Computed example of a mutant assay.
Amino acid sequence: MTHVFDEAITVEKLDAEHGYAVRATTHPAYNNMVGPFGGITAATVVAAIGDHPDVLGEPLALTINYVAPIAEGQWDLTLTAVRTNRTNQHWTFTIDQNEQTVATGTSVFGVRRDTWADTEARVPEAPAPVDVPAVDFPDFIAWAANYEKRFVAGGLEDGASDDSTSTLWLRDLPERDLDYPALTSMTDAFFPRAFLRQGTYLPAGTISLTTYFHATSEELAAQGSSPVLATARGARFGNGHFDQYGQIWGDGDVLLATTHQLVYFKDLKA
C-alpha cells in the first residue's frame, strides 16, 4: 500500500516547450488552514528534482517563496538546472496554477565529500519519546494528523509564553522511513511561533522557507522510521512578520537539517 505522503508528492511528467515540467495535485490529507501545507509543497519540489534524469547528487539547500496561496487541485512545477559544476548543481523553479505563478525558488544539489567535520550546535535535552505523551492539533489543520507529535516544551496547550521555543519528537503517521522529501516536509512542521507567544491561533502563513540538508543518505537510512527531535524558535516579531529558526536532530545526536523561514501574521489584538 502506498503511504499517504508518497501519494501527496506524486507528479506526472509534462511536455513543456521550455524546460522540464511536472504536474502535481494537492492532497486533502495535507490541507492547511488555507490551501495545502507548505511543507508538502516543498517536499514535492525536492522529490521532483531528485527524480530529474540529469540530477547531480543529493539535496543540499532549498528556498521556496510562496508568492500566492495554492488552491486545491493541480499545479505545475517547472525546473531549470542553471549550472552544473563538478560537485554541485544549481536549480531554479516556478510553480504555476491557473495561469498564475504561485511560488518560486532555488535549490542546490551536490556530491558530498569526505572532509573534516564538526557540529557546533547542541541537541536539546529531551526525555525518550515513549515518556512524552502524543498530542493532536485541531481538525482544521489536516496535515498535522500525518505526524506523531510529542512536545517536550512549547506546546500550544501551555498558553501564551515569553519564550517562542518548541521542542518535540516528530515522525510520520503511519510510520515511514525518513528520506529527503520527508525531511523537507518536517522542517515546516513547526506551528508559527506567534501562536505560542500569544497563546492562540491567528492568521499566519509562511512567505519564504529555506532548508539546509546536512544529513547524508546513509544517515537517513540509519534513522529509519524512528522519531526525530525537532526544535524551533523565533528571533523578532513585529510589523506583521517574524522569522523562525529550526533544527531537526536524528539518532546519535546527528543534526539532519536546519531551517529558517519568514512568516506573515495578523495580530488579533490590533
Rank of each mutant, 00 (worst) to 15 (best):
I64C: 04
I64H: 01
I64G: 02
N65R: 04
V67W: 09
V67L: 11
A68E: 15
A71D: 13
E72I: 02
Q74D: 14
W75V: 06
D76Y: 00
D76W: 00
L77V: 10
T78M: 06
T78R: 09
T80N: 10
N85F: 15
R86Y: 08
T87C: 07
N88R: 15
N88G: 12
Q89E: 05
Q89Y: 06
W91K: 09
T92V: 11
T92R: 08
F93S: 13
F93T: 05
T94K: 12
T94H: 06
I95K: 02
I95E: 04
Q97Y: 05
V102M: 12
A103N: 04
T104Y: 05
G105R: 02
T106N: 13
T106I: 12
S107G: 12
S107N: 13
S107H: 02
F109A: 08
F109D: 12
G110H: 07
R112S: 14
R112L: 04
R112M: 14
R113E: 14
R113Y: 13
R113N: 15
D114R: 09
D114N: 14
T115S: 09
W116A: 12
W116D: 14
A117L: 11
A121E: 13
V123N: 05
V123H: 11
P124F: 01
P124C: 00
P124R: 08
A126G: 11
P127L: 00
A128N: 00
P129W: 01
P129S: 05
P129C: 04
V130C: 01
D131N: 07
P133C: 06
A134G: 12
A134Y: 04
A134R: 05
A134F: 03
V135G: 10
F137G: 04
P138Q: 08
D139L: 14
D139V: 13
I141Y: 01
W143P: 03
A145M: 09
N146T: 14
N146D: 09
